[in-house]
Amino acid sequence: MNRIEFMTELAALLQDVPVEERREAMQYYNDYFDDAGDENEEQVISELGSPAKVAATIKADLGSQAGDYAEYSENGYTDSRFDQKEMPAGRAYQRKEEKEPPKTSRALKIVLIIAIILVGAPVLIPLGVGITLAVLGCVIALFCAFIALVVASVAVAIVGIVVFGVGIATLIPELAVGLALVGTGLILTVLGVIATVASVKLCLVVFPGICRGIVWICRRPFQGKAVA
């Protein structure tokens, strides 16, 4: 049985009670449930007993014996017998007051933010500039390294072509030397071409990724502020 069922049955059992007394009695028990709180609803019903028992008590109080126990005050219907263990209708249930978080002034927050910026600016600005320059230096150094790799690969291929040409020219007077030079030239040319193609592809893969990473890092703080 819940509160609604309890109060509905109690109201039905009090139909033969005068309207004013019935209204005050119903108001008393409604207030009693409200004071106890929703979390104590089952406990209140268990302590009060059945609606029939409560109705019988109210009717008895309204009879010739009511003067010893019951009265209707400005706070509603009260019965001294409800203070007893078997009918603790007068027992006080105190709701736990919700603690509201302390409200900080918006102006105070703004002042604190400005103070933090002013105090941290002499450190944060040079630090940010230093980190930016360091990242930029690393990117430039990496770019130069890749350019040097491409140039070296092309140079190997060119040397291989030159050696191959010299070997061809040396075949007539010195066959063995010419063949050695031709073979060496072919090997250098093939290695140079392979290294050139590989280094160019590596540049095309690595540098766009580095650029996207730098852009993502730069946009990250602003995205965080937008979400907040």
Rank of each mutant, 00 (worst) to 15 (best):
G37K: 04
K53L: 14
G49A: 09
V44F: 06
E42Y: 00
I58S: 11
A55E: 02
F33G: 02
Q65A: 13
G67W: 07
S64I: 15
E47N: 08
S46A: 14
I58W: 04
Y32P: 00
E42P: 00
Q27R: 07
Y28T: 04
A52H: 11
Y29M: 06
A52N: 11
D35Q: 10
V54L: 12
K53A: 15
E39I: 06
D68K: 12
D31Q: 08
D38W: 01
K53T: 14
D31S: 08
T57S: 12
Q65K: 13
E42T: 05
D34R: 08
V44W: 05
F33V: 01
A66R: 15
G63T: 08
D34N: 06
A60V: 06
G49D: 09
E42H: 01
Y32N: 05
T57C: 05
P51V: 05
Y69A: 12
Q43S: 08
G49L: 07
E42C: 00
S46F: 07
A52P: 02
A56H: 09
A36P: 00
E39Y: 04
N30C: 00
G67R: 13
N30A: 02
Q65T: 14
A60C: 10
F33N: 05
A36F: 03
K59E: 13
G63H: 11
V54R: 01
D31A: 08
K59S: 13
G67M: 10
F33L: 02
G63R: 12
G63W: 06
D35S: 08
D31K: 09
K59Q: 15
I45C: 10
A56N: 15
A55T: 06
K59A: 14
L62H: 02
Q65G: 08
A52C: 05
G63F: 09
K59W: 10
D31W: 04
S64H: 10
L62Y: 02
N40M: 10
E47L: 10
A60L: 13
D34E: 09
A52W: 04
S50D: 06
E47Q: 14
D31N: 12
K53G: 13
Y69V: 12
S50T: 15
Y28M: 06
N40I: 01
E47F: 02
